[in-house]
């Protein structure tokens, strides 16, 4: 990659696979359970987290030398909360229908432990540009898992993708349903998200033995 040095591109690529915040570090599970019943909210959540985490990482990194260490967690919290409120207000004013659609997710971003985790572990000790890349990388790593989980839960649970009936109509019995296929109602319930994440972790670790802990 010409634009990024090897070290920099590692910042983005590592969290996507071998250092994934959800499947390896097991952070951000709560929001991964809550919002992945459908594909669309999963994608929107992924985008929002990319924004908040990358901007937040830069802000924290710029302030890293002046933040008093005693209150650094509170300072981090304020930065996340401020960014989230700004996003929320701007959406309400200029993209009202989108903000209705997102409703609770915007608030949920604040509670995402990945964000605080990256502020604390990375941005406080690194320069803004590297922090920015780290933010993008981790948020994408989080988002990829959300989208995979959302894809399977919506497809198997409701037989739709983005609300389109890809498997036919379950009431009219067309498409797959004509052969006696049924939606798995379990998939729309939060515990199934955990199981899907578990399967992803299983697949990932069996492909890369180095990830298996003793």
């Amino acid at each position: 990659m010409g634009l990024l040095s090897k070290k920099d591109s590692k910042l983005i690529l590592d969290p996507l696979a071998d250092d994934n915040p959800i499947t390896i570090q097991v952070l951000g599970i709560c929001s991964a359970l809550a919002i992945t019943a459908q594909l669309k909210p999963s994608i929107v959540m992924a985008i929002s987290v990319v924004f908040v985490l990358s901007v937040g990482n830069v802000v924290i990194s710029l302030m890293r030398n002046i933040i008093p260490s005693k209150i650094r967690i509170i300072v981090q919290l304020i930065v996340v909360a401020t960014l989230v409120i700004i996003v929320d207000q701007v959406l309400k004013a200029f993209a009202y229908s989108l903000s209705k659609e997102l409703s609770v997710f915007i608030g949920l971003i604040i509670t995402n432990c990945i964000i605080m985790g990256r502020f604390e572990a990375f941005a406080l000790a690194n320069k803004p540009w590297r922090s920015f890349l780290d933010g993008i990388g981790n948020a994408l790593g989080y988002g990829v898992i959300l989208i995979i989980v959302g894809f399977f839960r919506e497809l198997l649970g409701s037989g739709t993708l983005f609300g389109f009936k890809v498997l036919g109509d379950s009431v009219e019995k067309t498409g797959l349903y004509a052969f006696g296929y049924e939606n798995n109602g379990f998939m729309v319930l939060p515990p199934m998200a955990l199981i899907v994440v578990g399967i992803i972790i299983w697949v990932q670790r069996s492909r890369n033995k180095e990830l298996i802990e003793d």
Binding site: N65, P68, I71, V75, I78
Partner: peptide, 18 residues
């Protein structure tokens, strides 16, 4: 060099931030 460990600095920082 700012002494970021001092209590007075912490308080001022918090007030300014808020």
């Amino acid at each position: 060099a700012i002494d970021t460990e001092k209590n007075s600095y912490t308080i001022i920082f918090a007030i300014v931030m808020v």
